[in-house]
């Protein structure tokens, strides 16, 4: 049985100009240790799909099951990282990371150990006592990832996590995320509008078509890791994705 099963999921939003169908009859499943990307033009409902899996949108049609259980609320088993770091500005980095285990039934020493371990995992040692406004955007996203991992989720959801970073920081953090994925054996779903990012990281890339959001195709990335962004196999997948998204190449 798959870790995550999305069956015939549709989501409508009420707006002033009537109902908008964000997702239409989407079905998808995810196996343990998989890295799945979701790409599509803006407004295709890719973030909505991620929020549904995270349990942040309780009303929808269809069925989402995670480890066999129906999803309709957030849970510590599904970690989520947003485009904005969403750290508490008045808490230090280690206090923010500790939010991930605040409600966990663990002894204080164990919580402390996990916080330190995950701060080290994302390479933020020495910044434990810094406040968020003292750090750069890339460091804050790393802290957000550490907070999510500290809760030891069974699945990590990433909603354009590097979308607001500059090109160099982005490439660096993509490599870091790949390292974390390999080390931690944790399945991830990455929503992004950066095709290169998706091809670099993912096993499968789901292409969503906009209005209403439907699965157009799923592209397998059958390239051994670590992937060379300039290799012919990499560019070929990039070309295929661009064509799927409606950008005809000359």
């Amino acid at each position: 049985m798959s870790l995550l099963a999305i069956e015939n999921v549709s989501k409508r939003f009420q707006s002033s100009s009537g109902a908008v169908t964000a997702l239409d009859n989407v079905s998808l499943s995810l196996d343990a240790n998989e890295f799945v990307g979701i790409v599509g033009r803006s407004g295709c409902g890719k973030s909505t799909l991620l929020r549904l899996i995270g349990g942040l949108e309780p009303e929808f049609d269809g069925r989402i099951r995670f480890e066999g259980q129906d999803v309709h609320a957030p849970g510590l088993d599904r970690g989520i990282v947003f485009q904005e770091h969403r750290l508490f500005p008045w808490l230090t980095i280690s206090q923010n990371v500790a939010i991930g285990v605040h409600e966990a039934p663990l002894p204080a020493a164990e919580k402390h150990r996990r916080v330190a371990e995950n701060i080290a995992l994302v390479g933020l040692e020495g910044f434990d006592d810094a406040f968020p406004h003292q750090l750069s955007g890339g460091m804050l996203q790393r802290a957000a990832i550490a907070r999510a991992l500290t809760a030891r989720p069974q699945l990590l959801l990433l909603d354009e996590p590097f979308g607001a970073l500059d090109a160099f920081n982005k490439i660096y953090l993509q490599q870091e995320l790949q390292r974390i994925w390999t080390q931690q054996n944790i399945p991830m779903i990455l929503v992004t509008h950066d095709l290169e990012e998706a091809i670099f990281l993912c096993d499968r890339i789901v292409v969503l078509s906009p209005r209403p959001g439907r699965i157009q195709t799923i592209v397998e990335v059958d390239v051994p890791r670590p992937r060379d962004r300039t290799s012919p196999a990499f560019t070929a997948i990039r070309k295929q994705l661009l064509e799927e998204l409606g950008f005809a190449l000359a």
């Binding site: 995270g54 942040l56 849970g75 947003f82 991930g100 409600e103 809760a151």
Partner: peptide, 16 residues
């Protein structure tokens, strides 16, 4: 609202 979502994701109690 964004931090309220974070509180929900990490299941923070009313006191927290």
């Amino acid at each position: 609202a964004e931090l309220q979502e974070i509180a929900a994701v990490y299941q923070l109690s009313q006191r927290a």
